[in-house]
Computed example of a mutant assay.
Amino acid sequence: MAVVVVTDSSASLPAELIGELGIRVVPLHVLVGDREIREGIDEVAIDYAAETVTTSAPSPGELRDAYVEALTRSGGDGVVAVHLSRQLSATWEAGRQAVRDMDATESVLLVDSLGAGLATGFPVLAAARCAAAGGALTEVYEAAVRAASSSHTFFVVNRTEQLRRGGRLSTAAGFFGSELVSKPVLQLVQGRLELRDKVRTRSKAFAKLVAAAAEAAGAGTAAIGVQHLDAAEAAESVTTQLRERIPQAGEILTAEFGPALAVHLGFGAVGVLVLPGGCG
């Protein structure tokens, strides 16, 4: 058999890659009033700007069930579970509780991706490809950790109120001034969202986004991820610019943000992930 990789639905990976690599995905939850929606499973229209819409992590029980299933499928080779940043979600902590409940600390290894969206997805890919190549449990774990610690993630959002309301943006970023005349460029630093820059127009914000990604890629090969929420044209433009600025880029994935991230990022958000060296 082979090591099985588990992640959460924030990873935003294409269904064909998930199926091809046998990745187990556990849905995050979006709470709309008194309804609980499982991301990627329950289809329902969501008003992402509504103050009554929130998100929640999978329960330890949900994660335990996924880990048990994956461990069985691995034939005892083990499980590597890669989840979105513990600074942004309670998912990793729920996973740790699940592993304790299973008494499986040596056979189910947890990785904090230090990111969200494709910033989680790329470490998942690195781990799953290592597993597919016959990697042992520790090798698969180390592949995920290396990818997580090497990645760079940048976002442009229209407004920061949803991030601040949800507690995902440091209060140290409170010097934005009027958001009517500035567009923030954010970055993930050790799993936390921080302000990188602010400019007056979206076009300048996207230029900063592309420049930051090109700098992060360096001179070697790199995997690139582009995500957006209701901003397909902007994401396509950013992708085209990235291809020009980073001609050595290998794999380029594009995806929409899922509902659990969309609640916090808001319409018009565009994110770029750069992983120097690629996903294995």
Rank of each mutant, 00 (worst) to 15 (best):
M1G: 14
T7W: 06
D8I: 04
S12I: 00
P14A: 07
E20N: 02
E20H: 02
P27T: 03
V30T: 11
V32I: 14
E36R: 08
G40N: 10
I41E: 07
D42V: 00
E43A: 05
V44R: 07
V44H: 06
Y48V: 06
E51L: 08
T52V: 13
T54N: 05
T54R: 14
P60E: 00
G61A: 05
T72H: 14
R73C: 00
S74G: 06
G76Y: 06
D77R: 12
V79D: 08
A81Q: 04
H83T: 08
L84S: 04
L84R: 01
S85M: 04
R86H: 10
A90L: 00
T91D: 01
A94N: 02
G95V: 02
G95S: 05
G95T: 03
R96G: 00
R100Y: 03
R100H: 06
D101A: 14
D103M: 04
D103K: 13
A104T: 06
A104H: 02
S107P: 01
V108I: 09
V108H: 02
D112M: 13
G115E: 08
A116Q: 01
L118R: 00
L118H: 01
L118Q: 02
L125F: 00
A126W: 05
C130Q: 14
C130E: 15
A131H: 03
A131Y: 01
G135K: 02
A136W: 04
L137S: 05
E139K: 03
Y141N: 08
Y141S: 08
R146F: 10
A147M: 14
A148H: 12
S150L: 12
S150Q: 14
S150D: 15
S151N: 13
F155D: 12
V156E: 09
V157A: 11
N158E: 15
R159G: 09
G167E: 03
G167L: 03
R168D: 00
L169V: 10
T171R: 09
F175G: 08
F176I: 15
G177Y: 09
V181L: 15
P184G: 11
V189L: 12
G191L: 04
E194M: 12
D197I: 08
V199L: 13
A207M: 10
K208G: 13
A212V: 12
A212W: 13
A213C: 10
E215P: 05
A217Y: 03
A217I: 11
G220T: 11
G225E: 05
H228Q: 14
D230S: 13
A231V: 02
A231L: 04
A232M: 07
A235W: 10
L242D: 07
L242F: 10
R243A: 11
R243T: 09
I246L: 10
P247M: 05
Q248R: 14
I252C: 07
T254N: 07
T254P: 06
E256V: 01
V263K: 02
H264D: 07
L265M: 13
G266P: 06
G266A: 10
A269M: 13
L275M: 09
G277E: 13
